[in-house]
């Protein structure tokens, strides 16, 4: 099974899907993202699907659950670059991906994430007077 790499860019995580997605790959991506959001304190997740030629109901549901779980972990998800034929097929399939924010390309997606991050301000652990690193566990939450 191939794994989809997750890159860190500022306070966002960047995922560019370049492989033919099989179900286990998408499940692994979901778990990797959850762990990386917590480990890095990322405020946003950008998933580029411009190279993805089909999104079926399983893959679509995974995008929705990635968006939901990152929200629970205080991060926003934007899916960018959906091909027109994929959008047409998803609508016909009856899957409109509720709760998934989309943008036409990476640049627009990053703009959405930056705006959302500014609106919400830094994470409490990022404030200068709070020097307890999140990775050491417990302390950051107590200090917040």
């Amino acid at each position: 099974m191939e794994r989809v790499p997750v890159l860190s860019l500022g306070d966002a995580l960047l995922v560019s899907i370049q492989v033919d997605l099989q179900d286990n790959t998408v499940l692994a991506l979901q778990e990797d993202l959850a762990e990386r959001i917590v480990a890095t304190g990322a405020r946003g997740v950008l998933i580029d699907i411009s190279a993805v030629d089909i999104v079926d109901s399983f893959i679509g549901r995974m995008f929705a659950s990635i968006a939901a779980l990152s929200r629970l972990l205080d991060a926003e998800t934007v899916v960018v670059g959906m091909r027109p034929a994929v959008a047409i097929t998803l609508v016909e399939l009856g899957l409109s991906l509720p709760g998934v924010r989309t943008a036409l390309d990476v640049e627009r997606g990053m703009r959405i994430l930056r705006a959302a991050s500014e609106r919400r301000g830094p994470r409490p652990a990022d404030e200068p007077d709070d020097l307890v690193p999140v990775a050491e566990g417990g302390g950051a939450a107590a200090g917040a």
Binding site: I54, D56, T89
Partner: peptide
């Protein structure tokens, strides 16, 4: 057509699963 290809491949993906 590209749209019909995408629809057929998506259907095949659902059914193969």
């Amino acid at each position: 057509s590209l749209v019909d290809q995408t629809k057929l491949v998506t259907a095949a993906s659902e059914l193969a699963r």
